[in-house]
């Protein structure tokens, strides 16, 4: 039976809570209401209110409580109702969770789930992709699954990880994609990218919802004779530079794609890494397709202009392919 991206996250959480009694959930409206997106619907009935904790509207308190609980041996999974509001818990994340091990050797095995991304006409406060706020913070791990398989496997790995993991789940994928998942248990390792489509002429390096845009573009360009490789980063921190560079060595042309805004986006770090490591393999300039440097617009026509899509990728990829 096909499983949606949202259901895959539910399954991962459910299985980990059954496996380990130290795992518990906390967040705004995750219990009685089942979560803003219903990811945790039915959890409080199964696991009880001591393990599915409805909290006040305070992201700082949610993350702080999660850190404290982790110090006491628990494994909390905190939900930010929208990733945009993770900013209210910023100090707890970057100054406490990220540095706790480094400063006094205390592990912080917490997961912070952050529904992110646009394309749902949510406007500037409910559509952002704030992953890069955290990618530059050593001590954190940042994952961005694109598929249902990876969403389930990565949430399970994140819960078992002994360091703080930020789990960015794209809202636009929740009910949009589905696939058959293995019936047996599995996990997906954090820190490992995946070549999701093999190709020889050009590499598209991307993550999250943009993986699907890249695949759509690659399929259309194939009709023109272009063989496009698509690399899904899956984890942004730690970054799997080896898989990225291997793809560039293979195709010699690279297009970097993300839904996040351009300046300070993941593409900049990737471009620098590629230039440092495999510059001599490049047969063309490194090309970026990203959102422009503006807040996410509310008006549908502006959001459509803001978001990267297959047409924008095809235009840039075709140019680079023929370069």
């Amino acid at each position: 039976m096909s499983t949606t991206y949202l259901e895959a996250i539910r399954e991962g959480l459910w299985e980990e809570m059954e496996r380990d009694p130290n795992v518990f959930l906390l967040g705004e409206d995750i219990g009685v209401y089942g979560g803003a997106f219903k990811v945790t619907d039915g959890f409080i009935e199964k696991f009880g209110e001591r393990r599915v904790v409805d909290t006040p509207i305070s992201e700082e308190a949610i993350v702080g409580a999660a850190i404290g609980a982790s110090y006491m041996g628990l494994r909390p999974v905190a939900e930010m109702q929208f990733a945009d509001f993770i900013s209210c818990g910023f100090d707890m994340i970057v100054n406490f969770a990220a540095k706790s091990r480094y400063r006094w050797g205390a592990a912080v095995p917490i997961v912070i789930r952050a529904p992110s991304g646009g394309g749902i006409h949510g406007g500037p406060f409910h559509s952002q992709n704030p992953e890069m706020w955290f990618v530059k913070t050593p001590g954190l791990k940042v994952v961005c699954p694109a598929t249902a398989y990876d969403a389930k496997g990565l949430i399970k790995s994140a819960i078992r990880d002994n360091d703080p993991v930020l789990f960015f789940e794209h809202k636009g994928l929740y009910r949009k994609i589905k696939e058959d998942l293995p019936s047996e248990e599995y996990t997906v390792p954090i820190g490992k990218a995946k070549v999701i489509r093999e190709g020889d002429d050009l590499s598209i390096i991307t993550y999250g919802a943009m993986v699907w845009v890249a695949l759509e573009a690659a399929g259309k360009l194939e009709e023109e004779g272009a063989s496009i490789e698509v690399v899904d980063l899956r984890t942004l921190l730690p970054l799997d530079r080896e898989t990225v560079c291997a793809s560039v060595r293979k195709t010699s042309k690279v297009l970097l794609l993300h839904e996040d805004t351009r300046t300070g986006g993941m593409a900049g770090e990737l471009a620098a890494s590629i230039t440092e490591s495999v510059f001599e393999y490049l047969d063309g300039p490194i090309v970026r397709v990203t959102a422009p440097d503006t807040p996410v617009p509310y008006a549908a026509v502006l959001e459509d202009a803001f978001l990267p899509n297959a047409e924008k990728v095809i235009e840039k990829a075709r140019w680079l392919w023929r370069y």
């Binding site: 422009p292 440097d293 503006t294 008006a299 026509v301 202009a305």
Partner: peptide, 12 residues
């Protein structure tokens, strides 16, 4: 009228 996409970067 709907906004003009050309104004995407306005008012930042």
């Amino acid at each position: 009228p709907l906004p003009d996409p050309a104004g995407l970067l306005d008012d930042v």
